[in-house]
Amino acid sequence: MTDTSAPTAPSTSSAPGTDQLVTTEYSESIPGLVHVRLNRPRKLNSLTIDLLQQLISTAHALRRDRSVRVVILSGTEGNFSAGLDFADTLKSPPRMLSHFIPRPLRGTNTFQEAPWTWRRLPFPVIAAVEGYCFGGGVQIACGADFRFTSNDAHWSVLEAKWGLVPDMSGIMSLKQLLPIDEVKRLAMTGEIFSGERAAELGLARAVEDPLAAAEELARQIIERSPDSMALAKKLVDETWESGERRTFARERLRQARLLVSKNAEIARKAAQKKIPPKFRPRAVR
Rank of each mutant, 00 (worst) to 15 (best):
T12P: 00
Q54D: 12
S225L: 07
T189S: 15
R103Y: 08
K91F: 01
K175C: 11
T18V: 14
H154K: 13
A160V: 02
E159T: 03
P93S: 08
F111K: 01
L38H: 05
G75L: 07
T2A: 14
D145S: 10
R120Y: 05
L158Y: 14
D227P: 07
K43V: 09
A271P: 00
A213H: 08
T8R: 13
R147G: 02
L21C: 08
M1E: 09
A15T: 13
N79M: 01
L90C: 07
G32Q: 03
S228G: 00
A160N: 04
V36M: 09
G136K: 01
V183N: 04
Q220P: 00
V71T: 12
L201T: 03
K274F: 10
T189L: 03
L178Q: 06
D85C: 08
F80I: 07
R285C: 09
P7H: 04
T24N: 07
A232K: 01
E244P: 00
L121G: 02
F123I: 06
S74F: 02
T149W: 03
Q220V: 05
A199L: 01
W155Y: 10
D19M: 10
T58W: 09
R282A: 10
C142E: 11
D65N: 15
S13G: 11
K91Q: 15
D181S: 12
L33V: 03
G137F: 02
L97C: 02
R252N: 11
